[in-house]
Design a protein around this nucleic acid. Structure first.
Lengths: 196, 196, 196, 196
DNA sequence: TATGAATGAGGTTTCATTCAT
DNA sequence: AATGAATGAAACCTCATTCAT
């Protein structure tokens, strides 16, 4: 591996701190309303340093996107689900995991939805993210349903986007365990009917 | 009513033009990245005039929200749906209307979702909008399903938020009639299973 | 003509003041070392206003070039010279006028020579300026010399560029009438030999 | 002399490389628009190192001036000219050498003319350079002309500054041998008339 | 009502310079 | 000797807002 001396190591930490701070600030205020000073302050440095590590504020945004990719997180939600259990508990567990992961990545997701409406690159990334996010559930279900491929794909997309919306507009503000469980329970029941 | 002389009338027109232009620009660039000059140009006037009609750029945003309420539009989607027809065609028609209305109000909706993540007032409005938007479908269905109130409410919310998401991420970019109809068709089929 | 109200007239004055101030500052410090604040201060306004009238600092530079064109000034130097007088006094008068004009436009010329070495557009303008500047003397002489066209052109260019150099490196710092007259006198004597 | 160990030797090389790189960059962009990073990159090091060898960017400029004196180069132009040959070929050869030397030192000369207009120290150096540069030709000619000292001095200055101007504005961009030879030829013919 | 000149605060970005390693 | 992380001042530029006309 590369040898980094102490100085360089500290530099790398600073760079990472800048990315993390940027995520926090961007998601709180939106990209445009976030100032480089905000971000630097959050990271405990000065704004000039941002330009030592990134070409522009925009590039910092992309560094945030790169570092905090959601996809691994989404895949985990499925991996941690045992495929031998009954569908109902499988789905309950999966959706529980999903909302859990979304909550862990609240900042990032909020930022994505805020910027996606105007930055096409972000929107494309978001769409690919969702497509990617559908796969785990799709593969979990494709051998256990009467729906054909097309139908299953749509069912999975609908249920999952509905859940993201639920997260964005309700769950992340209440963070109430009971409400969430009840929501998941009922949603699973109804989803099972679709799967047949 | 007060009678407006010619000058006042022209003024009112200008004010309305400013609001409409603001909607267009806000939805295209986001509130923060929109400049008063952008808006004025779009309206065919000069930026100074904005401050004759509105206290600030922020106030102009609220004027946009006030003027372009989505609720009537959503209600229409249900009103134009005859309650005596079979559920399937009723839902097909309703969802068709819904996507149609969303497309008509693309600018507004995009703006709402862009700003809702950071302006709490906008988020609250968006939530209330969605709650309001659920009512027509809820009332259309409540006497024709085996689901209890709670279940129906959730089912309606899930299906409808899924559809808004579909609109935001896909439909508004493709605007392909066939794809949309196919989407609606399959979604309705699956929704019918939930309604039982 | 266009009607300008008082406000617009004042605005035009401000714009012109900005251009003149820019010339002063650019020629004193060079383009790169001149700050927009410097220029604004010199003009008695604030730097923001520069961008009301000009797209960028660079565009302000071009506005300076446009407004303070040297060519009319150069042409005048010849126009004021009566073609019926003996060559010697004609040349003496012409060169006197030339140095006089150069002194009047010191700022501009110094700026040109400073920037021409790196801004190709400025260099081209400078070259065209010099070519243009040669014409009056050329037309004054072409019927009164044994030189052919080619030779005369070169003679005129050499003598005139030498004079500009003299101005740039000596005359503009001493501004001593006697020295200048003596320089002109001897130069004319030698130039007459060339003309034959 | 002091003996330099390997490390010191390498250091000296680096310092020289920095000076040469600075010359290149300064002449290309001008002093103000040149960054320490530019210079360091050109030299294959990092900007911090400049401050190990020089107090400031300005001091580096003076180091450039010190190292790259033009005077020896100018003197060479005369030294390589045999005084026994006819004036015409002598002058032809001398001016050929002069343009050749100027081309060799393009960077330096361009930098001088760019900065001379605002840095008085540079201007003084440039003037002294020109005065110095006139001497070789003056001494070459003083016994072979009817002109008195004063007249010869002026003739030499005029012809030589004209030639520098020719170099700055034309020759260095075209670098066309034929054009240059033709220019020199005609110029020499005319200069001979002055010398009488 | 409408214009657009003017302001001033503040944003992104650049850069000479310092300094720990 | 050499690196490059870090600083902080200042540059260019943007823009909401005010206001005289």
């Amino acid at each position: 591996m590369e040898k980094l001396n102490l100085r360089q190591q500290k530099g790398l930490e600073t760079k990472n701190r800048l990315i993390d701070s940027a995520l926090k600030v961007f998601s709180a205020k939106g990209f445009d309303a976030s100032t480089t000073k905000d971000i630097a302050k959050e990271a405990g440095t000065t704004d000039g340093l941002i330009y030592h590590y990134f070409k522009s504020k925009e590039e910092l945004l992309w560094a945030v996107v790169d570092k905090h990719s959601l996809i691994p997180s989404l895949r985990d939600a499925a991996d941690q689900t045992d495929p031998d259990v009954p569908l109902e508990s499988l789905l309950t567990k999966y959706f529980g995991q999903l909302l859990h992961r979304l909550n862990e990545k609240t900042d990032l997701i909020v930022m994505f939805f805020g910027e996606a409406q105007r930055k096409p690159q972000i929107r494309e990334y978001l769409v690919s993210l969702i497509e990617e996010g559908l796969k785990p559930l799709y593969f979990l279900l494709k051998d256990r349903t009467a729906l054909n491929e097309e139908e299953l794909r749509l069912a999975v997309r609908n249920i999952q986007t509905a859940m993201v919306m639920y997260f964005l507009l309700y769950d992340r503000f209440t963070r109430n365990e009971e409400t969430r469980e009840s929501y998941i329970h009922t949603t699973v029941q109804q989803f099972l009917k679709i799967l047949g």
